[in-house]
Design a protein around this nucleic acid. Structure first.
Lengths: 187, 187
DNA sequence: ATCATATTGTACCATACGGTACAGGCGGTC
DNA sequence: GACCGCCTGTACCGTATGGTACAATATGAT
């Protein structure tokens, strides 16, 4: 039997701390508390400290989206991949009860620390969705526009849901976009 | 001649600190640095410390939006008020170079500290825009839907613009919404 | 059973944090 | 010029911060 906590097991726990408190607000004491790991273990797994923890968390999130959302959008049948995107996103963000770590990091000066990862997370999402739309018959320009709007809209809905403490906002936003992507693009 | 800094003069400076670093990241030393005021003066103006500074900043932002955006949306001719909203928002957020303080506070646990102010900022915006649309001839349900989508979309565009370091995203989002609000609501 | 390695708890470090105390400086007013 | 009240700089407080050092413990392979 292996140890209770390997490095990979602890990353989702750290992710939740960063998600709730932001980078600056996530003190090591908070992280030790919610992982049950002392500083010793933490710095054994992440010799680079908080910075490396955040980097691992971002890579973990990025990997999930790449696997569950982006790759299907690029490679699978467009309709199915887009349907899976709605499902995946709704699941991942717990129907609006959860916030986007990458989006949160993007807003303050934490962005500068992880600029490349953060930018890539969003541009790859937009590009993959655009590709799926194009393969689904959308003209390139409208596809790019719609993809950008959907990804931005999801972020905005998460902000709004949390700000107003009304998770229904998120579901309504997803529903609107779902409907719009099913129709032909507007002139 | 009066002193260089009155309380009101310093609020926009503090606002910029909170905007760039978030609540947790805005240390008093950063605030003293970018205001030029020592702790003595700062605590003279804001006896409640950081909490009161943030509250003053939020009230300042809220006041600006109430005056420049919400009130016109509620009271003035809908078309003109909405046009002014696009102008005002583009100015305020410096065409995507600036981030929304209230949105940033909403994402981490800073929200819990200022929950009422944050929620009200967004709900009042949505409600005012919905009213303007209704007065402009939109059916109530579609107006509410569109208003929510626009306010969320603006937040999302700000996140995306900063995340990808591409301010053009913001302009494109505003353009899309502007166009859509000019048309009749979709079925 | 031995042993190297992986993991952990504890104590400690310098620094930065938010906040307080307070003595003085400065401006106006009489 | 004396006075008063607003403003400010400085020194200081206890605590928490991110990070390090290291001895002690567990673990797995032989």
């Amino acid at each position: 039997m292996r140890t209770l906590y390997e490095r990979d097991d602890v990353i989702p726990l750290i992710a939740e701390v960063f998600r709730e408190h932001g980078f600056e607000g996530s003190s090591l004491s908070r992280i030790t508390e919610s992982t049950g790991l002392g500083k010793g273990s933490l710095y054994h797994f992440f010799p680079g400290g908080k910075d490396e923890m955040a980097r691992a968390v971002l890579a973990h999130v990025d990997g999930w989206f790449e696997r569950e959302i982006y790759t299907p959008l690029r490679d699978a049948a467009p309709d199915g991949a887009i349907a899976q995107m709605w499902r995946g996103v709704d699941d991942y963000f717990r129907s609006g009860r959860r916030v986007c770590l990458v989006g949160a990091f993007a807003l303050d000066d934490t962005r500068d620390r992880f600029a490349a990862v953060i930018a890539s997370y969003f541009t790859r999402w937009i590009d993959a969705l655009r590709d799926a739309l194009v393969r689904g018959g959308w003209p390139a320009a409208q596809a790019a526009d719609a993809a950008e709007e959907v990804v931005a809209g999801i972020q905005g809905a998460l902000v709004l849901a949390r700000a107003t403490n009304d998770t229904a906002v998120f579901g309504r936003a997803l529903g609107r976009f779902q409907l719009r992507l099913q129709q032909r693009p507007p002139v």
